[in-house]
Write a protein that binds this DNA or RNA. Sequence first.
DNA 1: ACTATAGTTTAGCCAATGCTAAATTTACCC
DNA 2: GGGTAAATTTAGCATTGGCTAAACTATAGT
Lengths: 145, 145
Amino acid sequence: MALAGKRNSSAKLRSAAFRRIRADHLTELAEDYVELIADLIDERGEARGTDIALRLGVANATVVKTLKRLQDAGLVSQEPYRAIFLTGDGWKMAEDGRRKHKIVEGFLLALGVGAETARIDSEGIEHHVSEETLKAMARFLARSG
Amino acid sequence: MALAGKRNSSAKLRSAAFRRIRADHLTELAEDYVELIADLIDERGEARGTDIALRLGVANATVVKTLKRLQDAGLVSQEPYRAIFLTGDGWKMAEDGRRKHKIVEGFLLALGVGAETARIDSEGIEHHVSEETLKAMARFLARSG
DNA sequence: ACTATAGTTTAGCCAATGCTAAATTTACCC
DNA sequence: GGGTAAATTTAGCATTGGCTAAACTATAGT
Ligand SMILES: [Mn+2]
Ligand SMILES: [Mn+2]
Ligand SMILES: [Mn+2]
Ligand SMILES: [Mn+2]
């Protein structure tokens, strides 16, 4: 095989990682939204746009626009001026998000990271860990706790 | 303090994590670009747009546009139709990226994750770990290897 | 019932990041 | 040196996810 050919397949291999990251970023916001909505529903019976905006630290209008996309994606449902509900798919995604989130945050704590840092870092890391890495984290967690 | 007040400060605390993530996402692409450019320069003497596009898995035109932004940000420099260079700031960011990347990837390997998964997951995780978490990972790494 | 306030939506803007197709430039080969 | 092939840039488009300001709705208090 020529040098150019080797270069090509090596590059294709490497690019897989970046493709995965770009894909992760597309679902990341949706995951955080549905998880947050699930939390609000469990904590206080309903999820309102204002509360979502406040917890995410974005403007109300941003939440409205994002919820519209999530509705199109079949994750949430709502009537104008009413509270927000999760669809079946929405709940499924929220539960999976909670599962991952719990493992990653618990793992960081077990690793010796402070509570505040574990909370903040896990919010970002959770979207970029594969099932294999999650399994390794859970194993470590089980052994150390 | 009233209930609304408590809700408010709790929400403000939580929103810090999401603010950090949004900030991370703004620098994430820049970090990957400069690190990749540094690798290309070290590996083969120069970094060309085509190679960047190939390794990232995006179109050439996308690379051109992004490089323009990185140039405005003072991270890279280039003349039309010529190879791409890193500025002092660009090299600094690339070195820091390599440092973090190495720790995260090495850590995942030490945790028992397979080489391929460690490579892929670390490409995303590296942008969302604080210095405190990096330190904890380095500690684990030192102890286990 | 009216009205003030709080919550929500709409309108219109912007930046970042991706794409394809067409034009341009460079580099290499004869 | 001239002609091609590859690299590069430009043009034009779309989506995501942010913002502010203005308009609208629902609700709670009087
Ligand atoms: Mn989460
Ligand atoms: Mn998150
Ligand atoms: Mn990310
Ligand atoms: Mn990366």
